[in-house]
Nucleic acid binder design. Structure first.
Lengths: 124, 124
DNA sequence: GCATTCAGTATCCAACGGAAACTAAAGTCT
DNA sequence: AGACTTTAGTTTCCGTTGGATACTGAATGC
């Protein structure tokens, strides 16, 4: 979106989209949520998430690091040790994430139901 | 993610990811926000958003309709008229969206700053 | 010497998303 | 009569992104 085409009511749009790009990334909310408990290693995150590829996990961790949401600490030993933890900024992100999670829990059934209604409607 | 691989703490994950897939879609939050004011026509939304293609707008509107977040009302005249409006479910989604928007407004500068710090760090 | 661990890369391929052109159907202009 | 306009899309093409799989390097345990 070109800024000059936005209406006054949409001034927040750039920032909002930017944030949505972050938390909309496939594994970011899960990673942030897992790091709420404590700092964790790469392999630990991978194990806990289950079916995420190294590449995808690396990508999302790097992105969150760039954005200042997590911190990456490398201990140069062999085998290498890398710890990830939430920054204060990352910790503050837990607030809107929680709000979203609550909405998700409450309304997910309704969405699933709506989808199946739509599916059988278009099957007819 | 295969459900049986999730830890107990991540039971919400499926629902949360599902919701994030919706609101993470490129134009959905903007569309939902624009429909907060009142029901709007396809062309109206396209004009207000600015640089979205018909295809992308159609896709996101169809998706939000499937999920029961917006309602699509066709008036069979020529030229066709299609009105989109928020359902009660869609209206309830405005709550977490607002929470996210507030966080975005407050923390976007910090994120931008963190990114440029990262950029010059890796340039070195 | 061989396998394993850890934190990634590299390569390949499928899916998604955008740009631009096309469509239908009626009313209006010339 | 023929051309143009509007609305809400669809179609085709194409570039970028994201996932699956395989590979790397260095030390340690068997």
């Amino acid at each position: 979106m070109k800024p000059q085409q936005q209406s006054h009511a949409l001034a927040y749009c750039g920032a909002a989209r930017d944030i949505l790009t972050i938390i909309g990334a496939k594994w970011s909310v899960l990673v942030v949520s897992l790091l709420e408990e404590r700092a964790k290693r790469f392999s630990e995150l991978k194990r806990e998430i289950g079916d995420v590829t190294q590449k995808s996990l690396t990508t999302v961790l790097r992105e969150l690091e760039k954005d200042g949401i997590i911190e990456r600490v490398v201990t140069p030993i062999v085998p290498p040790r890398v710890d990830y933890s939430l920054t204060p900024l990352g910790r503050s992100l837990l607030v809107p994430i929680k709000s979203l999670r609550i909405w998700a829990m409450e309304n997910h059934p309704a969405i699933v139901q709506s989808r199946s209604r739509y599916a059988e409607k278009e099957a007819a």
